Amino acid sequence: MNIGLTGGIATGKSTVARLLVERGAALVDADRIAREIVEPGQAPLAQIADRFGPEVLQADGTLDRRRLGQIVFADAAKRKELEAITHPAIRALMRERVEALERERPDRLVVADIPLLYESGLASLYDAVLVVYVPRALQRQRLMARDGLTAEEADKRLSAQMDIEEKKRRADYVIDNSSSLDDTAKQVERFCLEMGLR
């Protein structure tokens, strides 16, 4: 079985993913793949530099994520242009890795961690969707603290994603990560038991 794991920025998807892996799940991480496809020498990086200019590259030829983020989070049309470059490559590699893991161990739960699962229209590719949830005010607070953002910068990033309440509404399963790590771990344990993981 495979599940799509999603939530919003700064809701704690990485924590929940780690807890699932500790309980035997295999993980395919869209953020990690997104970094892989923009490494020097990869076609999407060249396309990004062509589209957004050489200022999105650092002196060593790697992507300047902060600079690119400033451009695309300030302009929805530019964000869509970036997504048109990166999303097809990310989707193809995600699918390839999920299928390889399913072939390798058909009895294992495969978790595809995809922050923009709903926004990208990918939910139907998975047997179920697990949403990691925190209320938006807490999400904003955590994002500002984690990334050193101003309130305005945090709000732009939050507005670029589907509202967390809508994601929660659409979910097959929800982990509420607004309390303690211990509470989150207990919810993950219950989910794993329901999924047949020991």
Results as ranks from 00 to 15, higher is better:
Ala74Ile: 03
Met94Ala: 09
Asp183Cys: 08
Thr184Ser: 12
Val110His: 09
Ile175Gly: 06
Ile85Asn: 08
Val21Ala: 13
Asp163Thr: 00
Ile33Arg: 05
Gly53Thr: 10
Arg79Trp: 03
Ser124Gln: 13
Val56Asn: 11
Gly4Cys: 06
Asp182His: 08
Gln187Cys: 07
Pro115Glu: 04
Ala92Lys: 14
Glu194Pro: 00
Gln139Phe: 08
Met162Phe: 01
Asp31His: 00
Val188Ser: 08
Leu138Phe: 00
Leu57Asp: 12
Gly121Asn: 06
Arg146Lys: 07
Val28Arg: 01
Met1Arg: 10
Lys78Ser: 11
Glu22Asn: 12
Val56Asp: 12
Leu68Asp: 07
Thr150Glu: 02
Asp60Arg: 10
Ala43Asp: 14
Val28Lys: 05
Gln161Asp: 06
Ala128Cys: 05
Asp183Thr: 13
Gly69Asp: 11
Ala84His: 14
Ala128His: 13
Val28Gln: 02
Leu116Cys: 05
Asp64Ser: 12
Ala123Pro: 07
Gln161Lys: 02
Leu181Gln: 09
Asp31Pro: 12
His87Gly: 09
Asp147Ala: 00
Lys78Met: 13
Arg23Ile: 09
Ala26Met: 03
Glu194Ser: 14
Glu22Tyr: 02
Asp176Glu: 13
Gln141Glu: 15
Leu19His: 05
Arg95Met: 11
Gln70Ile: 02
Gly12Leu: 05
Lys80His: 12
Thr11Asn: 03
Ile37Glu: 09
Thr86Cys: 11
Ile9Tyr: 04
Leu197Phe: 03
Asp75Ser: 08
Gly8Glu: 04
Ala43Met: 13
Asp29Tyr: 00
Leu20Cys: 10
Ser14Glu: 03
Ile85Ser: 12
Gln58Cys: 15
Glu165Met: 00
Ala137Trp: 03
Arg170Ser: 02
Val98Gly: 04
Lys78Thr: 04
Met144Ile: 14
Glu102Pro: 06
Val174Ser: 05
Arg23Asp: 11
Glu189Ser: 12
Ser178Leu: 01
Leu125Met: 12
Ile33His: 02
Gly148Arg: 05
Asp163Asn: 11
Ala185Lys: 04
Leu63Val: 07
Glu153Leu: 07
Ala26Asp: 09
Arg67Tyr: 12
Asp163Tyr: 00
Ile175Tyr: 00
Arg136Phe: 01
Arg108Ala: 13
Glu194Val: 05
Gly148Tyr: 03
Val16Cys: 12
Gln187Phe: 09
Leu5Met: 10
Tyr126Trp: 14
Asp182Tyr: 01
Lys186Asn: 07
Thr11Tyr: 03
Pro54Tyr: 00
Val111Asp: 00
Phe73Ala: 01
Ala26Val: 02
Ile37Arg: 03
Leu93Cys: 08
Glu104Ser: 15
Val129Arg: 08
Ala59Leu: 10
Glu194Ala: 15
Glu152Ala: 15
Glu81Tyr: 05
Val174Gln: 06
Ala160Thr: 10
Ala185Tyr: 03
Lys186Trp: 05
Lys78Tyr: 02
Ala59Trp: 06
Asp31Gly: 02
Glu152Met: 01
Gln139Lys: 07
Ala151Cys: 06
Arg79Gln: 13
Leu143Glu: 01
Ala49Thr: 09
Leu63Tyr: 06
Val38Gly: 04
Thr62Glu: 14
Glu166Met: 12
Asp163His: 14
Glu99Leu: 15
Tyr133Gly: 05
Gln141Pro: 01
Lys78Glu: 13
Ile71Arg: 04
Leu117His: 06
Pro106Ser: 02
Phe52Leu: 11
Gln187Tyr: 10
Val132Ser: 08
Ile33Ala: 08
